[in-house]
Amino acid sequence: MTEYLPPAVERELPTREARDLLALVRDLAAREIRPHAADEEEAGRFPRETFTLLSSSGLLSLPYSEEFGGGGQPYEVYLQVLEELAAARLTVGLGVSVHSLACHALATYGTKEARAEHLPDMLGGGLLGAYCLSEPAAGSDAASLTTRARRDGDDWVLDGTKAWITHGGIADFYTVLARTGGPGPRGVTAFLVPGDAPGLSSARPERKMGMKGSVTAQVHFEGVRVPDARRIGDEGQGLTVALAALEAGRLGIAACAVGLAQAALDEALRYTTERRQFGRPVADFQGLRFLMADMATGIEAGRALYLAAARLRDAGRPYGRQAAMAKLFCTDTAMRVTTDAVQLLGGYGYTADFPVERLMREAKVLQIVEGTNQIQRVVIARHLLGAEER
């Protein structure tokens, strides 16, 4: 019997170049990423060589200016690339999103000299980035961070600990938010720190429910010296820099969530079409059909929501509310779709022999990273009601 192939995702892309790019990404994912995903996740192996390949293929630089080695692609294209990568393996899709997040501060707020010096290697030189905002006692309340940077001549000296850092300990560079002034959001400044800086170290990676191939670890700064030329933006501008990056990063998480959900739906379609009970494929039973129809509808709605936000961003219009909505809706949808996929496969869905149990475990983290979904509701409500509490 010929294996059932779920219908391809129908995408609305702005150019022929974008269509060719998505075809390249799908082919690369099918050959280089998806075949190894299950075994490497079970072994907890980070696929550094995959990121080297993505860098050499121009896929770590897509949303950034061609002037500094970027791909010059609009966000609506970049996010659909992320979706395809996450559908093949979330560790890869999310890793690309985090790398892009780590580049955002310098690309947006850095001096022209600093961008010219560092961005080409960050975007296409095989380097991998990490983003250091959260701390053991400062997660959702980012303005309470305590990592300190003190001025010493032409340098800054960093001391403190960052937590929940994707690529912690293996990154080549870190975008770090540290306190240079008094308490509150106006006392924070952003820095670009090399991964091999003396005094920088990492803890043992966290033991996680899912995404075991993605390295998440605390990063320690003990007297780490950083030249003032590596300061990003003005002193005290760090939280503005950080939150601007997170707005863009939320769209990356939303796209990854849609890719993960699509992978779970495709597996459920394949299984229910080939699995026979009572003399016919289980996909013929109305209860299962209705469940899959709801899964597909949620995925399409999430895709439309993140793309609408991306198009606002590409047009230079405010998109913070829509980004928070996309992150909230798409990650909740991924959790629901992967749970339903496990149910559709029955006992097999609960085993590691089929990918849906891994996808379900991985979906959970997307409701937490880069602002929990409860924080997204806070952000949305503030946009609706105005900056002041009512």
Rank of each mutant, 00 (worst) to 15 (best):
A116I: 05
A116G: 11
H118C: 08
L119Y: 05
L119K: 05
L119Q: 10
L119R: 04
P120L: 11
P120I: 12
M122D: 08
L123H: 07
L123I: 09
G124Q: 05
G125V: 02
G125I: 04
G126W: 02
G126D: 05
G126L: 01
G126T: 06
L127V: 05
L127E: 06
L128F: 09
L128R: 11
L128K: 07
G129L: 09
A130L: 06
Y131A: 06
Y131Q: 04
C132Q: 07
C132V: 10
L133E: 13
S134I: 03
P136W: 03
A137G: 02
A138F: 01
A138T: 06
A138H: 06
S140Q: 13
S140D: 13
D141E: 15
D141W: 13
D141C: 09
A143N: 12
A143C: 08
A143S: 14
S144F: 09
T146R: 15
R148W: 00
A149Y: 03
A149R: 00
R150E: 15
R151L: 11
R151E: 13
R151V: 10
D152I: 05
D152R: 14
D152W: 02
G153I: 08
D154G: 07
D154T: 11
W156D: 01
W156E: 02
W156V: 03
V157R: 03
V157T: 00
V157P: 00
V157H: 00
L158Y: 02
D159A: 04
D159E: 11
G160C: 07
G160M: 01
T161F: 04
K162H: 09
K162I: 10
A163Y: 08
A163F: 03
A163W: 08
W164Y: 15
W164V: 13
W164G: 10
I165G: 02
I165V: 15
I165Y: 01
T166G: 14
H167G: 00
H167V: 03
H167I: 04
G168Q: 08
